[in-house]
Computed example of a mutant assay.
Amino acid sequence: MSKLFIPAGYRMPLTNNELQRAIELIHEEFQHSLSVRLNLHRVSAPLFVDGGTGLNDDLNGVERPVTFDIPDVGTDGQVVHSLAKWKRLALKRYEFKVGTGLYTDMNAIRRDEEVDNLHSIYVDQWDWEKHIDVKNRNMQYLKDTVRDIVGAICDTSAALRNAYPALTFKPEREIYFITTQELEDRYPDLTPNERETEICRQYRTVFLMQIGKTLHSGQKHDGRAPDYDDWNLNGDILMWNPVLERSFELSSMGIRVDAAALDRQLTEANCDYRRKLPFHQMLLNGQLPQSIGGGIGQSRLCMLLLGTCHIGEVQASLWDRETVEGCEKAGITLL
């Protein structure tokens, strides 16, 4: 069912050919800036994992992974939702030292996604993870890392505007930090999405912290799996999207759970059955490095910096007939 929104008078300022070259520039510039700022190195990553290991990202706990049997291996594979857990295990396997980390291209299929201007069943993002010292498990380290990521976004935007003067979007480098509880207190009568839009309308670049915790209202701002982010030390990077006139999530990230946080959050989320899974056993026994990490949407970043109104303009996916016809009528090219 189409949820297509086309802003009045919308026109993509670049030709289709220029758009492809601009996407290439964004990827090159951002990867370089991010890896330098966070001291990351690129690694290869899986498209699917063993469904019985607990390595797949459970997202909100209700999304169904694409699963297929592998007769010659004797197990079922699951196309990843993200690499949130795999990356932490990779830090150990690839022997990354404290202060260094990895990034990779993550491609996923989220079959239960409700598609619209921002959401596709195909997900492409830069997944990254960094080995940190236990003393870095604090809010200041989290905020400093967010500043580095936003700095990489702003640097990429500057390079893009220099190459394509027709592009005018300039992200706000200064970040406004706020928790989900503070946001609820400020806008108690609004929905979570409406709150995000209002705070981004005012401050342009926002880091919304402590996602997954139950708020004073008894509700959660949004779901977050209990076994990768510490709900006290995580958040989303949001920016104001002037084309769609709304908040725009670019990254979900956080300092990862230690044994104590995992123990607490598994109980709170009624997921105690996961304690027996290999990944969770390693975490509870202190066998994995302390880390911080997240995902940064590749198509999302391209959308924002290029000023497109639909994610299908910067990535190839599948869309319902109404969306395809609506875009054709508006002169919008879906890849």
Results as ranks from 00 to 15, higher is better:
G61L: 05
G101V: 04
K92P: 04
N60W: 01
E114P: 07
V79K: 03
D127N: 13
M139P: 10
G101A: 03
E114M: 09
E113N: 11
K135Y: 15
D58A: 12
L102P: 01
V123H: 03
N60C: 08
E95G: 04
L102G: 01
V80Q: 07
M139H: 05
I132D: 12
V80A: 02
R88Q: 15
K135R: 13
G101P: 10
D76M: 03
E63C: 06
P71I: 04
E113I: 02
G61Y: 12
N56E: 13
N107G: 02
L59F: 09
V79E: 00
V98M: 12
H131N: 15
Y94R: 14
R88F: 06
L102K: 04
D76Q: 06
G101W: 03
R88W: 06
V80W: 05
N107Y: 10
R110L: 07
A84D: 14
F68E: 00
R88C: 13
N56S: 10
D58M: 09
G99D: 12
R137A: 00
D76H: 07
E129W: 06
Q78V: 00
R64P: 00
D69A: 05
K135L: 11
R93D: 11
N117H: 12
E114H: 14
S120P: 06
W126P: 02
W128S: 01
T100H: 14
Q125E: 15
Y103D: 00
V79Y: 07
G77K: 01
V134S: 15
N56K: 00
D57E: 12
K97C: 08
I132F: 12
G99L: 07
Y141S: 02
G77D: 01
N117S: 13
D105M: 14
K85V: 05
V66G: 03
W86P: 00
D127R: 14
V73G: 07
V66A: 10
M139K: 11
E95S: 12
K135N: 14
